[in-house]
């Protein structure tokens, strides 16, 4: 509570408020603009870049600067590529609404068409990672065994053995991956959002990335042994052993010891 109050007097507060106002404007724009966009072809082109630039200037330029060259509070986006935009905006991390240890996934603020336009604009600023095709992220074409080997060496220390998420320093965390789309997983590996390192194609090949996606997409469903208890490991198992196991058994002991009427 106190930290919230402090934050309200933060010198960044006006910026955050401004960002909020801009997001609201952008949202309104999106609602108004959507019908006229419905029949437009989704393929990126010059028109997309132009619309993307308008969207960018209305929604992103406050922090990232005109022409996405970066400001004191936000990095330059020249050369981050379409993949970074598609990930950050497509998972709702951008635009950021509150400052905190890290940008968090939220309800997405833009339509997929608008995201493509934004991505097209940012991609036009400098060469960077492209959005993967549907085939590159198709889990059915990946090998989960290779995926597991790559995942546990490169990803499991932050995201946990099955991608259930984990803690980083100073309030940052690695999120759960079970509901992340294959495209976003691929883009995250390629672009290294926020604390996450970059895993370029020389480090984890495109084929291995698809294998990783195949492995992650196997997780979070039915478990062989029953409820997964959050897939958090021995701590949650211990908690359940005390609460359910010992709880039931002490309940039974109380029943045995009670006088029957």
């Amino acid at each position: 509570m106190k930290s919230l109050a402090v934050r309200r007097h933060d010198r960044r507060a006006p910026i955050v408020l401004l960002a909020l106002a801009l997001v609201a404007t952008g949202g309104l724009y999106a609602v108004l603009a959507a019908p006229s966009r419905a029949d437009a072809a989704p393929l990126p082109g010059q028109a997309d870049t132009t619309t993307g630039q308008k969207l960018f200037e209305a929604n992103c330029a406050t922090c990232h600067g005109m022409g996405a060259v970066g400001t004191a509070i936000a990095p330059s986006l020249v050369g981050v590529g379409a993949a970074a935009v598609d990930f950050q905006v497509g998972t709702g991390r951008m635009p950021m609404t509150v400052s905190g240890p890290q940008a968090q996934a939220k309800p997405v603020q833009f339509t997929q068409t608008q995201i493509s336009q934004l991505a097209a604009y940012v991609a036009s600023l400098g060469p960077g990672p492209q959005i993967p095709t549907a085939d590159m992220v198709d889990p059915s074409k990946g090998d989960p065994a290779t995926g597991m080997a790559v995942f546990r060496t490169n990803c499991a220390m932050c995201h946990n053995a099955v991608g259930a998420g984990g803690s980083l320093t100073e309030g940052k965390f690695a999120p759960n991956l079970w509901h992340t789309t294959p495209t976003h997983i691929y883009e995250a590996m390629l672009t290294g959002p926020q604390s996450m390192p970059v895993f370029n194609d020389a480090n984890i090949t495109p084929q291995e990335k698809r294998d990783v996606i195949a492995f992650i997409k196997q997780q979070g469903g039915t478990q062989p042994g029953g409820l997964d208890l959050g897939a958090l490991g021995p701590v949650s198992e211990g908690l359940w052993a005390w609460v359910v196991g010992l709880g039931l058994l002490i309940g039974a002991a109380v029943w045995i010891g009670a006088k029957s009427s």
């Binding site: 790559v150 490169n154 390192p197 970059v198």
Partner: peptide, 21 residues
């Protein structure tokens, strides 16, 4: 080399922000 595939690593491929096991 890269763990576990054993591929050697070209210095040029090691970009800023990446991590290699």
């Amino acid at each position: 080399t890269i763990d576990p595939s054993g591929r050697p690593i070209k210095a040029a491929d090691v970009t800023i922000g990446s991590v290699w096991h």
